[in-house]
Amino acid sequence: MNKLKEYLIQFVGLKVGKHQFDYQIDNSFFEHFEFDEYNASNIKVDVLLEKKTTMLELTIKHKGTVNVPCDLTSEDFDLPIKGKINLIVKFGDTFNDDNEELLILPHGEFEFNIAQYIYESVILSVPSKRVHPGVKDGTLDSKALELLNDLAPTEIKEEENKDTDPRWDDLKKLLTDK
C-alpha cells in the first residue's frame, strides 16, 4: 500500500471549506488490490472534500471505461462506467469503518487514505452481467453468438385441433363457468 501514497489526504493543513482532488486510474491501481478482471482501464476520479470544523464530507465521483470480455461472446469491449459515493469522516476515540458511509478516525489523526473507497466505488459500478453493445443492437458478428442462436430453444406450438380426453374438457368448463 506504500505505492498508494498519492491517495493520502492530509486534512490538517487545509482551511475550512471545499477542496478538489483529481486522480487518473488505470490497471496499475487495481494491481495493488490484486484485482485483474479488467484488460485495461481509464477512469477519472474527482474527489470533493468539504472540511468543516468537526467533520469532513467527501464526494467521490468517477467516470471512464474498463475493457472487459463479454459474458455471452467473450469478445473484449470498452464498458463505460460512472459512479458516486458520499463519505462522512468524523473523529472519535477509536478507528471505525464498519459503516460504508461513515468513517471514524481517532482524535489526533491528520491524514487518511481514500484508495480503498475509490477501489470499491469503481468495482461496484461495473455491472455483474457484461454484454457487448453489439449483441444488444444486433451489429456484432461472432461465431459464439451464431452458435448461441442456433442452440436457442424454439417455441413449440400446440395443435389446436388436438384430440383431448373428454373428461378433461368437462373439467376445463368448470374453470371457465365462473
Rank of each mutant, 00 (worst) to 15 (best):
L58D: 10
E101I: 06
L79A: 07
G83Q: 00
P133M: 11
T139D: 05
E75H: 01
L58V: 11
E100C: 03
V135E: 07
V131S: 13
P153I: 13
L147H: 09
L175V: 13
N86M: 10
Q116G: 03
D97F: 08
D169E: 14
T176M: 12
L171R: 12
Y7A: 09
L87V: 07
S125R: 07
E31Q: 14
G13A: 06
K157C: 07
K15P: 05
E160R: 13
D71F: 04
E100L: 07
N161I: 09
V16A: 13
Q10W: 00
E75M: 01
F91A: 12
S28W: 03
G64S: 11
L87N: 04
Y7R: 02
T59N: 08
G108S: 04
F11L: 09
E120S: 01
T94V: 12
N149R: 15
D169G: 04
H107D: 03
T53E: 13
V135R: 11
E31I: 13
L171V: 15
K90I: 14
C70K: 10
L58A: 10
Y7P: 02
V122C: 08
G138I: 11
E120K: 05
K129F: 06
D71E: 05
L124Q: 08
C70V: 08
I114R: 10
D137S: 06
E6D: 10
K3S: 03
T54G: 02
L58H: 08
N67V: 09
E101N: 07
K178A: 15
E160Q: 15
F112K: 05
Q24P: 00
P80E: 02
V135L: 10
S142I: 14
D22Q: 10
T53S: 09
D177F: 01
V45K: 03
L49G: 11
P69L: 07
K90D: 07
Y119A: 03
K162A: 15
L147C: 06
N96L: 01
I85M: 10
K51D: 06
M1V: 08
